[in-house]
Design a protein around this nucleic acid. Structure first.
Lengths: 145, 145
DNA sequence: ATTTTTGCAAAAGGTTTGCATTGAC
DNA sequence: GTCAATGCAAACCTTTTGCAAAAAT
């Protein structure tokens, strides 16, 4: 989805076309990694824009609620967000915290159905992330650390 | 593993046999849900024991590092811990936050191998949790909320 | 003009740090 | 006696809340 389409989407959802929203959309579109609110704040600060953090938190969670961005939690105490795209998962490096997206042909559908029936639990989504050591850190950090 | 075995395991790891550790082990053994530190503190407070929270955090993360308990993050800002047992995953109810463990025949091994080779990323573990609505909430919360 | 959005200050909630004291071995 | 473990106070960090001011429709 491109910038314009997103702005329209926002309006369709009854959200007004504001500066912060445009900036957030642009940031997420250019990001090559999921971003946490503090990351975004820093990025904007670098550009001499100092949006209020309350606003960022509010806006980001609104965009997530509207399914324009999706939420990722790698267990380090911050929620990260990325442009909503096809369903995928992540490789998270435990040393340098780099995050790589991996599209995965969904092998979990059948499993979900079985679980749903067996536990009488209606599944709406799942999270699946892989943790380990990325290429760079395998080479660099070999013995030390 | 039973209480005694765990105490021995602690000692084998060079950890001293202290009151707090014994209490923690007992709590985790009787827990039927993963527990966060604030939960544990509350539980101990109910029993008129008021351990320092710093100690709890330190101790819990030590037990996790020693693989006596395992960590679970359901994305609500608290880390939960549960007795280390066989590999399993969780059904997390988005309404009442109940957590159900589901043992899963690991279908992910092959996928992990493929990912590892393809991305030159050495995978050490993964997280897989399912979110949705539990039976109780399906009945109770049907239309409202 | 109305309603949403923003900014600010304050606080909440989980977690960590530094340092002195206590307790296990 | 030695070193690990505990307690306390303070801080850290992300996130939330309440309310008034500003901007979008």
């Amino acid at each position: 989805m491109k910038q314009q389409a997103i702005i329209h989407e926002l309006q369709r959802l009854g959200l007004r076309n504001t500066r912060i929203r445009r900036e957030l959309v642009a940031i997420f579109q250019h990001a090559d990694n999921p971003l946490a609110v503090p990351d975004i704040a820093r990025e904007l600060a670098d550009r001499r824009l100092y949006p209020n953090k309350t606003t960022l938190y509010r806006e980001v969670s609104r965009l997530a609620r509207c399914n324009l961005i999706s939420e990722l939690d790698i267990g380090d105490g911050k929620k990260r967000y990325e442009m909503q795209t096809d369903h995928h998962h992540h490789l998270v490096c435990e040393q340098c915290h780099a995050i790589t997206c991996v599209p995965i042909a969904n092998q979990l559908c059948q499993l979900e159905e079985e679980l749903a029936i067996h536990h009488d639990f209606s599944i709406s989504r799942h999270t699946l992330e892989f943790y380990g050591t990325c290429r760079k850190c395998q080479k660099a950090g070999g013995g030390r650390r």
